[in-house]
Design a protein around this nucleic acid. Structure first.
Length: 258
DNA sequence: GGGTTAACCTGCGGGC
DNA sequence: TGCCCGCAGGTTAACC
């Protein structure tokens, strides 16, 4: 998404902003349009799951897609269009979001730095030592820690289940109880699964997860446990288990994840 | 201070 | 056929 956004808007001036759903800009209020209009987009960065666009006036345009948010180039007819951003000499950038959890707002430089600072090390290149430090002393469940953005940034429900399966670790292990070898396995599994998913264009389970061109990712075909409950574990053939705890569901192999 | 839970939201599928 | 309910999930505030 960051790469697609970079190609579509980097170096271009924002000439118009139409907020069709105020909830999409709830944090920034009605000022979003005023803050963006007339500025030029510099770099497009990522901090965990947050997209950060540096603006020519020193402010930072922040977007989080949450579950169903999408940034589509030239899709004004999308039924879930929430914000339309007119780009000079380019197609409109359309923020579409079926479930309305996503949001965009503008922060000044130091505020954006604060947002990024609150996040843990980036999961895409986390190493064993960094992960061990981040998990040390944690008494909660390993999966909850892995999904906690202040501990490790960038992992959500799908990739935490996949990384834990690859590392042969149970979701409910005490997060601070991992041995150095287990930390090495989990760090590598987390990096590997995210890189593989990225190479495949992400995981699209229901057509909601698409890139800026509207194309679905292909990683769903390579998932080992997520969405495979009841089917054989690819490693030991035990049926994959599914359980719901609170608002999140977990898939795991009850035999080869210890 | 760290961990847990509910709320936010819409569309879809299953059950009746 | 139509209605109701549960489920999907990232972040945050409130609570323990």
């Amino acid at each position: 998404m960051r790469r697609g956004l970079e190609a579509a808007i980097e170096g271009r001036r924002i000439k118009r902003v139409d907020v069709l759903d105020p909830r999409a800009v709830r944090r920034g209020g009605p000022d979003l349009a005023r803050s963006l209009t007339g500025t030029t987009v510099g770099g497009v960065r990522r901090a965990g799951k947050w997209l950060l666009c540096d603006l020519s006036d020193g402010n930072v345009w922040v977007t989080h897609l949450r579950m169903s948010g999408r940034l589509l180039v030239g899709r004004d007819s999308d039924p879930h269009l929430r914000v339309r951003i007119g780009i000079e000499n380019g197609a409109d950038l359309c923020f579409c979001d079926q479930r309305r959890f996503g949001e965009m707002f503008v922060l000044d430089g130091p505020e954006a730095d604060d947002l990024a600072r609150r996040l843990g090390p980036d999961a895409l290149d986390v190493d064993a030592r960094t992960l061990a430090r981040a998990l040390a002393g944690r008494r909660g469940a390993l999966k909850a820690a892995l999904c906690n953005q202040t501990i490790v940034a960038g992992v959500g429900n799908i990739y935490s289940d996949e990384a834990l399966w690859r590392a042969r670790l149970r979701w409910d292990r005490l997060a601070g109880s991992l041995s150095p070898a287990e930390c090495r396995r989990l760090a590598k599994a987390t990096r590997d699964v995210l890189r593989a998913a990225l190479a495949a264009g992400g995981t699209s389970t229901d057509g909601l997860y698409v890139d800026t061109a509207g194309d679905t990712g292909g990683f769903a075909a390579h998932l080992d446990v997520y969405g495979r409950e009841g089917r054989p574990c690819p490693r030991c053939a035990t049926p994959v288990r599914h359980l719901t705890r609170g608002a999140t569901s977990t898939r795991f192999c009850p035999v080869c994840q210890a």
